[in-house]
Amino acid sequence: MKTFLFCVLVLLVILIGVYLYRVLQGPTIFDRVLGLNGISTKAIILLIVMGLYFERVDMFIDISTGYALLNLVGALAVNKYLEEKGAP
């Protein structure tokens, strides 16, 4: 089970790299926002799997809850700003 969880962690990091390509490459700015949203969802899952790997789930779950809320606030702020101002 330990090895399996380690493989899951490695695969999640590779997926984050894929999303990072979209963030750096994206033609419009909305692609970048979308890629960041995907990265944060991956990071939440990554944190919980990491907690399972180190057998400290109770601590890592609180961190991931806070991360989800911060992600909501950040993405909404960026989107409101872009909606008022228009894409550069």
Partner: peptide
């Protein structure tokens, strides 16, 4: 939360004339 973020992104993209 995730539908809210997706909806906000799409609405911003649509309103900025994409």
């Amino acid at each position: 939360l995730n539908p809210v973020i997706a909806h906000a992104t799409i609405r911003a993209a649509l309103r900025s004339g994409l």
